[in-house]
Amino acid sequence: MSTHPEPALQTTGLRKAFGDHVAVDDVDLTVPAGSFYGLVGPNGAGKTTTLAMAVGLLRPDAGSARIFGVDVWHDTVQAKALVGVLPDGNAMPERLTGREVLTYLGLLRGLPAGVVAERTDELLQVFELDAAERTLVIEYSTGMRKKIGLAVALLHAPRLLVLDEPFEAVDPVSAATIRAILSKFVDSGGSVIISSHVMALVEQLCDHVGVMSDGRVVAAGPLADVRGTATLEDAFVGLVGAQSRGTEGLAWLTA
């Protein structure tokens, strides 16, 4: 466990409304340094919006976010140097190849050219993107896009990773690779927060969990505390109050 006194990520009272719809309402999250944090919740719970506000990609209506004690909205530059981000569904420099994206962003961050080349090579190999050297990002498949996004998040060796749905659309082999990379990162003192709706995955990877529903955090803390004696999935269903409606309706489909 890390001995860092400041939490890796702390949000206080984050709020965001789109028109009349309040997407995120008064969200307090604490990701302890050195933890692997899973943010779970049903579709539309506000996970993506929360993470975007936490890293400085979406201005909150109220509240604040700190990365290792650095205020994201005041000391923007300092905070951004500490974090690697994988947002959900954003565009990339679409007309560059994967290698070019990493080279460009590494040099733009001021890393020495030698270091950039070395890390780019390694990242492309690990994520198995080195076979598509002449493919532009705009031509990538959904899974490839996710992987180049992860590579971008890792490139500058940040101390905190904020990953929105990192396993979505990724094939099982790549998913295992990503799991291994993230676990190793946490073991060496890094901190990770991922959002997901795959409970089994979160249960297996994470040591801390936050459960969101309707824009609010309904439970948060160490995994063991949140799930109690049941599985995370049962705890989640209990917390979110979702009922399986699969058995009713659609009679015409089975007729």
Binding site: G56, L57, T76, Q78, V85, P87, A91, P93, L105, R109
Partner: peptide, 8 residues
């Protein structure tokens, strides 16, 4: 977003 997340 990449320009915004890269300091400076």
């Amino acid at each position: 977003w990449l320009t915004l997340m890269t300091p400076g």
